[in-house]
Structures are given as structure tokens and as C-alpha cells.
Design a binder for these strands. Sequence first.
RNA 1: GGCCCGUUAGACAAGUGGUCAAGUCAUAAGAUUUUCAAUCUUACAUGCGCAGGUUCAAAUCCUGUACGGGUCACCA
Length: 448
Amino acid sequence: MEGYGIDNGIYGPYEQSERAEIYKIVIKELIKKGLAYPCFCSSEDLDEIREVQEATKQIPGYYGSYAKCRYLTVDEAIENIKNNKPYVIRFRSSGNHNNKIRVHDEIRGNIDIAENDIDVVILKSDGLPTYHFAHVVDDHFMKTTIVTRGEEWISSLPIHLEMFKALGWDAPKYAHLPLIQKLENGNRRKLSKRKDPEAAVTFFFEQGYPVQGVLIYLMSIANSNFEGWTIENKSFDLDKFKFDIHKMSLDGALFDLDKLSYFSKEYLSKLKAEEMTSLALEYASQYDKKLEALINKDKVFFTKIMNIERDKENPRKDYAKFSDIYPIVRFFYDEEYNKIISNGYPFDPNIKKDVIKKVLTDFISSNDYSLNEQDWFNSLKALGEKYGFASDRKAYKANKDKYLGTVADVASMLRVALTGNKNSPNLYYILHILDKDTINKRINNAIK
RNA sequence: GGCCCGUUAGACAAGUGGUCAAGUCAUAAGAUUUUCAAUCUUACAUGCGCAGGUUCAAAUCCUGUACGGGUCACCA
């Protein structure tokens, strides 16, 4: 079996163009055996055939007596080629559409399907093989043991099987995967590589989702027991998960962005801060110039930001995608901070300006940066109490008139002054990432 | 239209004749927290597309039917 990660690819070459020689040899062999022939029908000829078939309610296709070029003599064919008539090579089918054959699919079991009787094109007029032919030749010479492909290929399985047989080769096993669908105008349809940009993993990377997150999501669709596994093992390591072809659902799943976000958040939250930084930079350098500039300014500083409440059992889950980082993190940087506050500070209008001023002024002179998180927060409570803010919510609720507010309000003043936002990550960590001068400068600016 | 595949809650999905039809995401309510991100608790299919049948017993077996998807290219 050949495939990603299994060996180094010892059955090459792998480039389509380099394989051309192989296809030619096989085609020659087929022609010699009478299993393939050149066809000179133009697309108009083909249309004509189809029209006749449709009019007489016959199965459309190039087969039996409709396969005109099948009956050309060698001389006629040579004559046509000499006259530079464009041609394709078709496989000469000996199947009968009325015969049913039983094919086996690794995930669907047995499927009864009509034998192929159509003379499919195997070499196009541009000299390139069609998928049907390339699949048969490639997977034979690469000694593929199982081919996994989309469900849309089931109907052409008889063609492939017939070709393997005609060439005297053993056919591989097949596993046809359900298609991923998307909703369009209320209808489901398969996600198409050509029509839908989101069919490519790179699309999600452009959107800022980590590639690994997308892969994890895809695995959750592919194997129904994967989610349970991630919970049991507290891991999203795809390499450790044992993929089971039988744990595969048979019908096509709708692509679910919510779920992608969920997995992506879980995955990103479990990364080390350094990994987060380098992945974010990788993304930003290509798609997010603003973020790139911030990261490159000082990677150590940025990593500190990424590390906020990360190194613990339940890490923060702020980011589902790298493009979420910039808006959350920008206030750390002075130029960005200045832009944010150019529209004013969103202080709570219910608290008087001079109270805010007093509390924050006191904070500047009294804050002790050496305290641990718990002690620091207690000191913030104490600061609040000094100016009439309740240190716990219950006391405040029981006696609202007695207080100006709660510690939450005190924390909020500080937050607004330091970040220009009502929401931010844990203040304690912000205070330890920003330097003291910046903190004091920002507070002073906010209360002037 | 012919042929294939499928149909369990808003999404994904377990379930292969026998207690209340797993679990995850989403949603809602509550708790908790200095805000947020979270976290915790609870709620969410008298029902397994529909109709018949077999059986003491069916989401699970049979028949029919509807709906969805795929395919019928010198595209993969």
C-alpha cells in the first residue's frame, strides 16, 4: 500500500506528465489486444447520438451499435490519423447493461449494479488520460490496496472493475466516502472542489482557522466515535486516534461552521503559547498584515499575551481562528490603544467622574505589583471599599443604597482606563504584561 | 428520467428485536466569576421520513411509498 506517511513513495514517478510514458505503453497493449480503439467522433457526432437515444428512450452513451468508431477498420483509422483528424482512445467494453454485478464496498457492503457497456474515453485528444484510466493504471502500478474516494464514484465502479479485469490486473478494494454537503438556497448539495472554495483546507486557513482544527473537525465527521475518544483521552492528537472505517456514517454531512469553531477553539487553547505565536505569525504574514506588524514588533511580548491564562487545566478559549486575535489583543500596543480611545472611554455613566478619578489615582500610588493574583485581587477589593464599593456581591445586593457599586465596578474602571474596552482578558495579567510607566500613563490619560 | 446511495432532534451522530432512543455542537434557563472567554447545573425526539405488515415485543425484520443526495462528459 502506498500513501501518505506509509513509505517514501517507491512506485513513482508521481508527476502526471512523467507518467505519460506508462499510459502510452498500456494503451498500446490494449489496442494490440483489441481492447481499445481510436475514436474520431466530434462532439457534434456525440450530441447527435445522444439526441437519437433520448428520442427513442434508450440509455444514452457511446456503446454497442452507437459506438461507431468501434467498427472502423485499421486502414480507416490510419487514414483518419494521417489526415490529422483529432481522436481519442476509447476502451472497448464487452459488458452487458442488463447484467447485474455485485461489487463490494468496504463501508457500504455489497452493491448490486449494472455491468458497464459504455466505451469510455481513456485518452483524451490532448493526450492526457481520463481519471478512469489514470486510476486503473496508477493504482495498479503503485500497488494500491484500497482506494478511498467520494461516493460520486460508485456509479463508475463497473467501468474501473471491467478495465482491471481486461488488463488482467487485480482490482483494489474500494471504500466510498459520503460526500460533505452544503446548504444552498435551502437545498443540500455536494461540496464541489471546483465550485466551492471551502472544499479546500486552505480556504479555512485563509479565514484564519488553524489547519489542524479543520482536520480535527473533518475527523469528527469521518469517524463517529472520534468525539468520544477526544473526551476520554483529553487529546485531539489525530495520530493517536485509531481510525475505523466501520465507524463511518453513510450519508453526507452538512458542513457545520459552529462545530469547526468549537474544535478549533479547543485545539488552539491547548497549544503552548510559543506554538500559538508561531502559527499566528505564519497566518498573519500571509493574510493579516496588521497582526503581523504587532507580532513582529516583539515576539516575546506577543507570546506573553498569548500565554494569558493558557497554562492551566482550563485554559482561556478566546480564539477560534487567528483572525480573532487582532481585535482582542490590539489594546496592548500604544498606537492601537490610542486609536481605540480616540472615541472616548466607555466608562460606566452611573459612576461619577470624580469617584473614578479618586479611585484610579489611588491605584497608581498604591498598587503592589508583587502580589500574587489572589492577594492582588483582595487589594483591589480593599481599594474599592475605601471609596464605597462593596467587596462582595451579596453584601451589595442586600444593601444597594449603602454602596456606590461593587468591586466589579472598580475592576471595570481599571479595565476601561487600561484597554479602552469594557471587556478584556484577566486584569491581573494585563498589569503584568504592560510596563508600569505605560499603565500609569494610560490611567492618567483616562482621568485627566 | 434510468441506475446507485441514503433518511434517528436545528447540525453531527450512537443504536443491528426487549428497561426512560447514548454522546457532541447549537439553543434556552439558572449558578459561578472583576468583565469577557470559559466553567458547572438543568431543559431540549411519547419519537426514529410516511403507510402497512411480521412478532408477546421493531428505530432495528418485510412490503410499498415519499423525500434528499450522487451519477449518466474528451471533469475529476
